[in-house]
Structure formats: structure tokens, C-alpha cells
């Protein structure tokens, strides 16, 4: 028997992608984790082991901010899961209805905010909701509901929810498109077979289509999770690095930015910043692992 040939074309074709990916993703990631194990003492970079993490979790000055950011982050995620994804799936179900007219128009209109820059979205919504120039107060006034208006972005109790809903508005196109793509792959015969068995209309969606697109919903959830725990831009654009009012909109991303780069008189601390980045990485890794090993392996797949 001849020795198995080394198939050179495989490493050669993989090389460019691997090199680029390593240089811009893998290396910075590991370097960040490495940086978290050091500290700057009298202009010298000193290895301190896990001391930065100890400070982050045990020093009340740091841990209070960390837990606040993490709790806010979970709330941010929860709103996306409860509002963005169900509405996105419902929109996709409506859009995939064969008798809906102008489906392509609605689809594009709903998807457009997704391609807008955070800066534009944050700025536009700040103006819409502004108590001074915004159209939100005057629109509510026009229908006699002015009493419902509050300066939402400036109130501790509403600011984070408001921002989460703005983000939902922006990204609702993503779950919609993914679900839509999954829904149109469901063969007509299956639905027709169901119809013969007496399953029509809304129950066809619940009993036939939804089970078939569950894997897609799983992927949407994990994308939402990763996206939300890496979120930063919208909060930074709308509320600044201090994530006001009184840190009520502070999420891990803004906490990390403030620590890493510094803010106003607070000097940047790349080592503590990296420790926070490391904690974010661990949280996301944990969430993704739970999904991959505990949920996805148990999900039933149907041959279509």
C-alpha cells in the first residue's frame, strides 16, 4: 500500500484565510487575555497572575460596576429575546404568506434599519425622543396622550429599556430574514398534506412550520446573545462612555471601553480593561457552549 499523499493544495488554499484570521482575530484575542494577567507598576509591565480578576470580582469598587453592567446586559438581551425575536418570526410568517401583496417592499423596508450606522440610529432616535425638539412629545400630544411622555433616555428606570427597544427596531430585520429564508424552504407538499389532515391556517404554522424552523430559531437566539453581550456602539453614541443616567445603561462593552481607554480624568488601564474583556469572552463562550452542547445536540431535525 502506498503512503497517503500529502494533499498540499489544502493547506495552500487555507493559508490566506487562516493567516488573515489569525492576525486580526486570534492573535489579538489571545494577546488581550495575556494582557489581563499583567499590571503596570511604576511604568513596568509586571506579571500579576489572576490579580486583575480578583480585583474585578472582589473589590467592591470594581465588582459593583461589573455586576451592574452584567445585569444590564442580561436585561438588554432579555428584551431582544422577548420582543425582537418573536416579532421578527411573526413578520417572517406573515411575509411568507403566498397571497400577501407588496411582500418584497415590506421586507426591504423592515430590513433597511439594519444596514444603517449606529451613529445615525442613535442620533436620530435621540432627536425623535428629545423633550425639546423631538416629534415624540408632539405626536403624543396630538392624540391627547401627552401625559404618557417622559424624557425616557434621561430617566434611570427607562433609559436601558428604551435603548434596548431602539436596538430591537434596528435589528428586527435579521431574525425576520433568517426565519423567512427557513420558511420558504419548507416544501408545499408538507403543508398540503397537513391540510388534508385538517391542519390549516394558524395551526399549520404552530404544528408544522414552527417545529421545522426550530434550528433556525436556535441560531437566531445565539446570534442575539453574542451580539448583545458584545454591544457597545448604540449606548456609547446615545449616552456616552459614562452610560448615564447614573450608570443605568452601562453594559459590559461600555464598562470595558471606559476602563481600557480611560474617560475624562479617569486614566486608561489596559490591564483591567483586558480583564473585563476576558470576562466578557468567558461569558459569551459559556453561553455559546451551553447552546451547542446542551440544546443543539438535543434538537430534532427533520429531513425535508
Amino acid at each position: 500500500m502506498s503512503r497517503p499523499r500529502i494533499r498540499w493544495h489544502i493547506p495552500i488554499f487555507l493559508a490566506p484565510a487562516v493567516a488573515v484570521y489569525s492576525a486580526v482575530m486570534v492573535f489579538p484575542l489571545f494577546n488581550t487575555l495575556r494582557l489581563a494577567l499583567f499590571s503596570k507598576i511604576e511604568q513596568q509591565q509586571v506579571f500579576v497572575g489572576l490579580q486583575n480578576f480578583q480585583t474585578l470580582f472582589l473589590d467592591p469598587n470594581w465588582s459593583e460596576q461589573f455586576w451592574n453592567a452584567l445585569a444590564n446586559n442580561f436585561w438588554f438581551f432579555l428584551i431582544h429575546m422577548l420582543v425582537q425575536n418573536p416579532i421578527g418570526i411573526a413578520l417572517a410568517a406573515i411575509l411568507s404568506h403566498p397571497r400577501l401583496r407588496f411582500a418584497a417592499l415590506y421586507r426591504s423596508a423592515i430590513f433597511i434599519p439594519t444596514i444603517l450606522s449606529f451613529v445615525i440610529v442613535g442620533f436620530a432616535w435621540k432627536l425623535i425622543l428629545s423633550p425639546i425638539w423631538g416629534i415624540a412629545p408632539s405626536m403624543l400630544d396630538a392624540v391627547g396622550l401627552k401625559f404618557l411622555y417622559a424624557p425616557w433616555l434621561g430617566k434611570e428606570e427607562y433609559a436601558l429599556t428604551t435603548l434596548a427597544l431602539i436596538s430591537v427596531w434596528q435589528f428586527i430585520g435579521i431574525p425576520m430574514m433568517l426565519t423567512y429564508a427557513a420558511l420558504i424552504t419548507i416544501p408545499e407538499e408538507i403543508v398540503e398534506a397537513g391540510e388534508i389532515d385538517g391542519i390549516t391556517g394558524i395551526s399549520a404554522f404552530w404544528k408544522i412550520k414552527l417545529p421545522l424552523i426550530l434550528p433556525t430559531i436556535g441560531i437566531i437566539s445565539i446570534l442575539t446573545f453574542v451580539g448583545n453581550f458584545n454591544a457597545f456602539d448604540l449606548i456609547y453614541v446615545a449616552q456616552g462612555a459614562l452610560a448615564g443616567p447614573d450608570f443605568s445603561t452601562d453594559i459590559l462593552g461600555t464598562f470595558m471601553y471606559r476602563t481600557f481607554f480611560g474617560f475624562q480624568l479617569q486614566l486608561g488601564d489596559p490591564h483591567m480593561g483586558s480583564a473585563i474583556a476576558g470576562a466578557m469572552f468567558a461569558i459569551i463562550l459559556l453561553g455559546v457552549s451551553i447552546y451547542l452542547f446542551a440544546i443543539q445536540t438535543r434538537m430534532r431535525r427533520y429531513q425535508l
Partner: peptide, 12 residues
Amino acid sequence: LGDGFEAQTYPD
């Protein structure tokens, strides 16, 4: 301060 000063920004 003006109405809704909680959400009033510096440029406002």
C-alpha cells in the same frame, strides 16, 4: 429647568 431636562443634552 426646562421640561424633560433629564434627557436634555449639552448642545440642546
